[in-house]
Design a protein around this nucleic acid. Sequence first.
DNA 1: AACCTTTACTTGTTTTTTGCAAGTAAAAAC
DNA 2: GTTTTTACTTGCAAAAAACAAGTAAAGGTT
Lengths: 144, 144
Amino acid sequence: MKTEIRSHCPISYTLDLLGDKWSLLILRDILFKSKNSYQDFLDSEERIATNILASRLKKLVEQDFLIKKRNPNNKKQFFYFAAPKAIELIPALTEFIIWGAKFDQHTAVPKDFLLKMETDKLQFVEHTQAQQKSLLNSNDSYSD
Amino acid sequence: MKTEIRSHCPISYTLDLLGDKWSLLILRDILFKSKNSYQDFLDSEERIATNILASRLKKLVEQDFLIKKRNPNNKKQFFYFAAPKAIELIPALTEFIIWGAKFDQHTAVPKDFLLKMETDKLQFVEHTQAQQKSLLNSNDSYSD
DNA sequence: AACCTTTACTTGTTTTTTGCAAGTAAAAAC
DNA sequence: GTTTTTACTTGCAAAAAACAAGTAAAGGTT
């Protein structure tokens, strides 16, 4: 899978890597919902197709957004962890959360949660990033 | 054009509205590059096709991201202005700029500009938003 | 040891979206 | 009155996504 880069405008570049229907939703599952396996992603309510999921995971690993590791307790299962390139997307995705919650009349985000998130935005971002970094480090020893 | 909403997760919702290959690039042109007309958008280096541009502009107007107005000095030309729903995307797009500039080895963004943007992020965001709001207001009197 | 389940995919086909080339139509300029 | 500008539309080809089904290996169950 080759990703065509339309230009070196930073917004365009980001969209070329991640601006399809599913890549950012997989990253959302990992970064904000503690999901890590193929089956976890399949179970998400947006219902990604198996072939699309497989091809997106492959691309995200190839492009260093995700790191794929065997579950040491179950040789047939793999876990996907956020690499630094993905962890650095947390500020942008946080702004998407704020925007989406503000303009979706039927948003799943509770009002008080949103309010807290907006006032303590930096804290929320840094806390989420620290969480992902420690997850990544704690599994450093695993193979694959 | 009907937009299917996959879920009311705010990230998913945002992507359902804007997560195609071109919508956010049109908004970038308006929000960050002072572009406002059909011809301006066609001239962008990413080379959108005319039919796609027309259909995206229609959708963005229908969904209240953009306001379409006649050029009062040239009856055949239209201008597209960012509505509040688009102006509120500036924080998210700013994070995309920062991310894209950081991870694209060949980014068009100069290092010192990026550094200034990161340290004075809030100021950059608010300045860009204020600019767009005044543009919108100053054209309030135009018809269409 | 044989069978069933879990897990992570792949394959083949249909549908939807995008891309490309050309054409239209009305206002404006010359 | 002819050409140019501006904003599109149309028709067809190519690419991407969606859907349904199948594969294959590891693990668990009897």
